[in-house]
Design a protein around this nucleic acid. Sequence first.
RNA 1: GGGGUGGUAGUUAAGUCGGUUAUAACGCCGGCCUGUCACGUCGGAGGCCGCGGGUUCGAGUCCCGUCCACCCCGCCA
Length: 593
Amino acid sequence: MAEFVSELKRTHTCGALRGGDVGATVVLMGWVDATRDLGQFRFVTLRDRFGVTQLRFDAHRDADLYADSGRARSEWVLAIQGEVVSRGENANRELATGEVEVLVTRLQVLNRSEVPKFPIRDEVDANEDLRLEYRFLDLRRRPIQSKIVLRAEITHIVRDFLHGEGFLDLETPVLTKSTPEGARDYLVPSRVHPGEFYALPQSPQLFKQLYMISGYDRYFQICRCFRDEDLRADRQPEFTQIDIEMSFIDRDDIYAVCDKLVARIMREVHGVELQLPLPRMSYDEAMARFGVDAPDLRYGLELSDVSDLVAGSSFSVFSDAVAAGGQVKAIVVPGGADLSRKQLDELTEVAKRYGAKGLAWAKGSAEGWTGPVAKFFDADAQRTINERLGAGADDAIVWVADRTPVVAAALGNVRKHLARSRGLIPAGVYKFTWVVDFPLLEFDADQNRWFAMHHPFTSPRNEDIPLLDTDPGAVKARAYDLVLNGHELGGGSIRIHDQDLQSKMFELLGIGAEEAELKFGFLLNALRHGAPPHGGLAFGLDRIVMLLSGAESLRDVIAFPKTASASCLMTRAPSPVDAGQLAELGIRTLKNE
RNA sequence: GGGGUGGUAGUUAAGUCGGUUAUAACGCCGGCCUGUCACGUCGGAGGCCGCGGGUUCGAGUCCCGUCCACCCCGCCA
């Protein structure tokens, strides 16, 4: 069709034309968004990533052209030349280009398209697996596109800001060494060394420390990381970190840089001015008040300890828990006297899912508490507890009694569930907080050993170093997370820069001197060659984009994501490879035997 | 590894207690239509009911297994 226009050059994007362009002759290129044929003329809306422009084909002006245009189908790729004309009173206010349309004089079909499996519309009800298989079509849809574009804008802000602050954008290897601890590694077989493997990095942690030791103060990288663990809506096997490391600094220096970075992103993306410095709270406080280490501060529903008030209670669930060294904590549900049995059952289910044996509850009333727990508490006891909690006659109280970590997990998640189900989460609010002073170690009862809570290179607080020998569980780390609306955006620590302390850490973690030398010899060696004090952190770029774009899944902010079973429905990866490839790598598989 | 939800025209869904020819909307194909913008309107085509077994005179429907997707627990320093 119409080879005479093949030399056409695009003059405008599909989002560019305005009333001021009336009279201009323009060339547009794009995808057929929709066609509307009215018999003697036809409207075609043409789309590219900049917008949509309405084209008009008029049978009275050019019958052949009109007939040609009738062959165009959804998602065909067209080039058109025409005159910009005003739409007058037919203007479409919904559309940026809606004041004008292009009266087409030349048409070239640049490409045809199969009928798309689902319509390229903002609202689409196609299943997600179909959309993932046809990801290249889904990415044409405006809501997805705007998230991918936002992602590009944020990475640009990050690079621009950090460059301005004197950071160097430095690369680290992707084929690297498998290390113990942490997540499962993705392994890459070596052809040259049969039977040996590289690992894809879970993070560039050790390399950025080595950069510091090499004197490359102020490093950053936007880099891909890989963890072979089971997935969630907010967890992908490969994800992107904004990785930062600095020398000759302490925690405050990290907070300061990150505060400014986050403030800049919020200002440029959402026009929100953050009050700096961002608030900080200790890990212990977060766990006590919210039950989780990444508290959502957009709503109240805080946890209160009533162990002392119920220790002597005749309600054995409470008194036994306290006697066993556990605790009893409560959440007041404002206006919760209207909670239905079904809603309370739901809350109980949540508490059980996180290890609690149940959820005790009472509803307020003018005559005192109602509900199964009420009979164990006389009017005085009820009043004392109500006063401690600030609970009134319209409210409900829910309790969990158990070991401290179970109480925290159960009530922390009951709190989240309550906030969602009772609509207590305000829209458009961004509550940041640093959570600091994480425990250095946590004890794994199953394996009867200590694990690093952050990673084995995290420095304890100086004042806690003596505790390493006497009470390792009490040692706090110089580690910190930045939390937004209940999601961990990033975390980091001041690192150990002393080889003796590092060796001691390995010892505590049950990594023998020989094993440490084998797995981390290069780091220990480097620490012996003039390591400066250093530290840093890593942000999860995907999560930042997810939270700032209002996406509910990480899949929406990653252009080509993987499913919950870590496969790519578009490429069908992972896939078998032929026997020759495996033989070359010295690999024989167990499956299908 | 465990639990939950789902899989029926191209797409999204309905399908009752197991019963005759499996419905609808959108999309697609064709006709008509001079101001549409999710155009309208008339007509048409379109089915391995995820897959494999079983029960039954008879299975989209019941049972067992399996695959895929989503959500959650464990896991993710």
